[in-house]
Structure formats: C-alpha cells, structure tokens
Simulated assay, not measured.
Amino acid sequence: MKIALLDSGIGLLAAAAAVRRLRPDAALVLTSDPDGMPWGPLTSEDIADRALACARAAAAHDPDALIVACNTASVHGLPVIREEFEHAFPVVGTVPAVKPAAAGGGPIAVWATPATTGSDYQRALIRDFADGVEATEVPCPGLADAVERADEAAVDAAIEAAAARTPRDVRAVVLGCTHYELVAERIRAAVQQPGLAPLVLHTSAGAVAAQALRRIGVRPDPGAAMSGDLTVLLSGREAGLPDAALTYAEGRLLASTAPAAQG
C-alpha cells in the first residue's frame, strides 16, 4: 500500500512516523511546499491552491490514501482536495483534538497558529465539542516557523511565550498545529505546573494515521516487514528529507527506515 501525506512543511513528519509504526510495510509519499511557506499569512484561496498543488504532486504517484497532515490546509484546502481526488482515493483531514480533550474535563488550552486562533473554524470546534468546559485559545506566533527551521532558541522562546499565556490550572493542551507535535515534550515541560496532575497533550498524528488505514480497509500491523519506500516531494520536486527534518525523532525514524531514499 502507499500512503501520501501533505503539509506546508515538515509538520507532516509526526503523522508519517505514525503510519510507519502502524504499517512498516506501507510506502510513503511526503508532499510539502517549501517554495510557498509560510501558508499562514496567505489568503484562504491561495492556501487552497497551494495545498491542491501538493495533492496533485502526490496523486501522480498513485497513492491509496492522502492524509492532509496540516491544520491550516485542512481548514482552507480540504474541500477542493476532496472534490478533485476523493473519487480516486480517500482524503483524510486533520482536526485539532478538542473533543477528546474536553471529554477529559477542563480547563483545557488550544495552542494554534495566530491565523487559526480565534478563527470561526476553531471557535466552532470549541463550541460544538467543549460546551461547558473552560477552554482557552492560545496563539503561538513564530512557533511553527521555528520548528520548521529547527531553530532551537526560537522554539524555546515561542514555547515560553505561549506557556505564559496559558492558564496555570489547565489539565490538557490541544496541539492545533502539526508542527507542534514535533516538540510536544518541550511544550509539556513548559506548561506543567509543580504539584498538579500530569498534563495531558492531545495530538492528531496517531488518529489520522489510523483513520487513513481504516479508509482503505487495512488493519494496523506493527510487525509487518519494513518497506522502506519513501518519496519526498518539495514543491513537486523529488528530493531527500530536508536537513531540518533529521533533527527530530520522527524524521530520523523515516530516514533510518528508508536509506535508499536518502542517497
């Protein structure tokens, strides 16, 4: 089987690694858009256009499913991507895990990009799935860009600033940007308060990976023989994993299981 994943940048690594763990025999196609980054400041129409271009690049490799492993692309581009490709293969979007976070009780915080924080989309999620639970929207300016560049100092500064805007009594944090999952434990350490119960982080990578397998009628099989087949498309061009990807455990996992793709 072949699973494609789409993001503006390396935020797709977490979901790709989740697919690799669930089905080591799956071939992976990673399609991103370094030429057009960052997507956040673009208009909704431009984001949809760039996400659709990434999807078309992946579609040329005949995947069995496409994961839109990007919250911004899912908000603005999922309808047009599904309109063009759902007849050919399942398209799975990424939604912040507000519902499971709220089910565990509050208060909760939703960390997201400034463009997503306060958006009608995110507020509707909170209204529909966190009714009666105290939920705080926390904008995280610069964090996704810092993760993309693997700029350690900038990552720490952005996390520290967002943690300062997060209520001290939150029980759970929803990571509303796939890039944030790559630094999840650093976020946990910054938000966790002494003397309180362990903070719960709610991510999306595992859920979207499992959903993609369900959509193509395949069960998880972590013990399957490793495929190692990895195709990386950077604004449509075949390449290796970006250097920044290899600074994260998820990127190193993908690289270690696909040595031929990195030659």
Results as ranks from 00 to 15, higher is better:
Val138Leu: 02
Pro79Ile: 01
Leu42Asp: 00
Arg149Glu: 09
Arg219Met: 10
Ala16Asp: 00
Ala27Trp: 04
Met226Thr: 13
Leu201Tyr: 11
Ala88Arg: 13
Ala239Thr: 11
Asp120Phe: 07
Ala60Ser: 03
Leu233Met: 08
Thr113Asn: 08
Ala245Lys: 02
Glu250Gly: 01
Thr247Ser: 09
Leu182Cys: 13
Phe85Glu: 03
Leu241Gln: 06
Tyr248Met: 09
Val92Asn: 00
Gln192His: 01
Val68Pro: 13
Gly142Gln: 03
Glu238Arg: 14
Asp221Gln: 13
Asp128Lys: 07
Gly176Tyr: 01
Asp7Pro: 09
Ala144Ile: 00
Asp151Gln: 12
Ala157Trp: 01
Pro242Val: 07
Met1Val: 11
Gly36Ser: 11
Gly93Leu: 04
Leu12Asn: 01
Gly9Tyr: 01
Ala144Arg: 00
Gly105Tyr: 11
Ala130His: 02
Ala60Gln: 05
Pro41Glu: 01
Ser74Thr: 14
Thr31Gly: 06
Ala161Val: 11
Ala146Met: 04
Ile81Asn: 07
Glu250Pro: 04
Lys2Thr: 14
Pro139Val: 06
Gly104His: 11
Lys2Asn: 11
Ile47Asp: 00
Thr94Ala: 11
Ser32Asp: 13
His202Thr: 00
Met37Phe: 14
Pro63Ser: 12
Ala14Thr: 04
Trp39Leu: 13
Ile108Met: 11
Ile126Pro: 00
Pro79Leu: 07
Arg214Pro: 10
His87Asn: 13
Arg171Ile: 15
Leu28Ser: 07
Leu213Thr: 15
Leu6Glu: 05
Ala210Cys: 05
Ser256Val: 11
Pro96Leu: 06
Thr231Tyr: 12
Arg219Val: 07
Arg237Gln: 14
Ser204Trp: 02
Leu253Pro: 00
Ala163Ile: 10
Phe129Ser: 05
Gln122Pro: 09
Gly105Thr: 06
Met37His: 04
Ala26Ile: 00
Lys99Thr: 14
Ser119Pro: 07
Thr94Gln: 09
Arg20Glu: 12
Leu13Asn: 02
Val174Lys: 01
Leu234Phe: 12
Ala15Asn: 02
Ile108Asn: 03
Leu125Cys: 01
Asp33Met: 06
Glu238Val: 10
Ser74Met: 03
Val91Ala: 05
Leu143Glu: 08
Ala209Asn: 06
Arg165Gly: 15
Glu134Cys: 02
Ala190Glu: 05
Arg168Ile: 06
Arg123Phe: 07
Asp25Ala: 03
Arg56Asn: 14
Cys140Ile: 10
Ala18Asn: 09
Leu233Ile: 13
Thr116Tyr: 01
Val68Asn: 02
Ala57Lys: 06
Ala48Gln: 02
Gly77Ile: 12
Ala162Met: 00
Ala101Trp: 04
Arg214Ser: 15
Gly11Thr: 07
Glu181Phe: 13
Asp151Ala: 13
Pro96Ser: 14
Arg219Trp: 08
Gly9His: 01
Gly93Thr: 08
Ala58Val: 04
Glu185Arg: 15
Ile216Asn: 01
Pro220Lys: 06
Pro34Leu: 02
Leu5Val: 14
Arg50Asp: 08
Cys177Glu: 07
Pro259Trp: 03
Asp120Lys: 15
Ala255Glu: 07
Glu152Asp: 13
Pro41Met: 05
Ser119Cys: 08
Val98Gly: 03
Ala51Ile: 09
Thr231Met: 02
Gly106Thr: 06
Ser235Val: 06
Pro198His: 12
Val19Thr: 14
Glu134Trp: 14
Ile216Ser: 05
Ser227Gly: 14
Val170Tyr: 12
Gly77Pro: 07
Ala245His: 05
Asp49Glu: 15
Leu254Glu: 00
Ser74Val: 15
Thr178Phe: 05
Ala158Cys: 10
